[in-house]
Amino acid sequence: MLRIPCPHCGERDETEFHYGGEAGVDYPADPSALADDAWAAYLFLRANPRGWFRERWFHGSGCRLWFALERHTVTDEIRSA
């Protein structure tokens, strides 16, 4: 069981959250200006590092806040982003 530190509610069980994947992937300012491969990259391509990873979480059962944190994908250590 991961314990996720919600910025508002404090540390809670992982089951209260939804995982939001890699953080910092912004919706393109003008999608229509993107070529197909650039758009596909936005849609489908994400980093998947072995090690520290900045990722998004949503406290769906709690305060409904989206936030980012850093998690180590091997050890599951968590630190604030």
């Binding site: 393109p28 003008d30 999608p31 229509s32 993107l34 197909d36 758009w39 849609l43």
Partner: peptide, 13 residues
């Protein structure tokens, strides 16, 4: 509309 979620994908071949 200039954009809506999914519009760019709907423009794909």
């Amino acid at each position: 509309k200039p954009d809506f979620i999914g519009k760019r994908s709907l423009a794909r071949d």
